[in-house]
Design a protein around this nucleic acid. Structure first.
Lengths: 146, 146
DNA sequence: TATGTATTGTTGGTGACGCCAACATTGGAA
DNA sequence: TTCCAATGTTGGCGTCACCAACAATACATA
């Protein structure tokens, strides 16, 4: 394997990005195995945990643009994993609901994704995994503001 | 700020991906400020550290697909940051060389990127930063094989 | 009450990255 | 000599992040 420039290797942003690429590949493979993908999983997760919600709320919860939520819901609704009905109390909004089949699909994706975490963190001890996720969570919280 | 599903928050792959998104945004802004972008920086870095190289070698060093190296070199050569000459010893290959101006551009990008590291890791202590980059480096080394 | 401001869903588009298939040319191994 | 591998190139695709504009609707405040 050819050597990577130290200029890159020394930069946390490079390491983060490259590890994220591998993580994304693992996750995408896991998702594909059950016929879904990242955006779908995000929406299904939010619906399962917080119940029915408007599209804008969904987007804010899972860090997706409004327009991407629309496209994703079109696909999910096409597979009957989700239902979209107008909100009678606010006619700008839709109320998005998780269907039984959607919940089942989420469960399948979840199992695939659990395996991914193990593969991703294989070289780290349990204590190291905790330390890593703790620091990442702090970084994310910090950057989600401002 | 709306709450994110625990299903996501609990997954290292999610945290990694989201932090990487913020890191990428910071880096892209820094790069844009000096008129460049990630792919350019990778190529310039490899040329600066290892000297002239073939396109295939460049791609392997900085984890870029052959075809993406071609496009990037077209742009870099268009700005005279790089020169592409046929290799007399192997007529399949090109020898790519960093120009004076290319080295200057690299230096500018480097300064921008150094600032990004600080912004990215702001919430972490020096010891934590080391621990984080150490673990990320191990993960990357592990996943670069197989 | 009227008027302006914000939010929502939607459409359509852009860009960075990562990746794949195919091809002609060339080098090297069997 | 024959087959296999590597190289540069073209052209395409998918995911994710993001932006601008629009009409409809809600809300605040003057």
């Amino acid at each position: 394997m050819e050597k990577t420039p130290a200029r890159l290797t020394a930069k946390p942003s490079w390491l983060l990005g490259q590890v994220a690429v591998h993580a994304h590949r693992l996750a995408a493979d896991g998702f594909a195995a059950v016929g879904t993908r990242g955006y779908h999983y995000r929406i299904l997760s939010a619906l399962d945990e917080f119940g029915a919600a408007s599209q804008a709320d969904l987007g804010r919860r899972v860090a997706m643009d409004r327009s991407d939520v629309v496209a994703t819901l079109n696909e999910l609704a096409g597979q009957a994993l989700v239902e979209r009905t107008p909100d009678p109390d606010d006619r700008r909004r839709n109320i998005v609901t998780l269907t039984k089949e959607g919940a089942r699909q989420l469960k399948r994706a979840d199992q695939a994704l659990d395996q991914v975490q193990d593969d991703l963190l294989a070289p780290l001890s349990a204590a190291e995994r905790d330390a890593l996720t703790g620091m990442l969570a702090r970084l994310l919280a910090h950057h989600r503001q401002d």
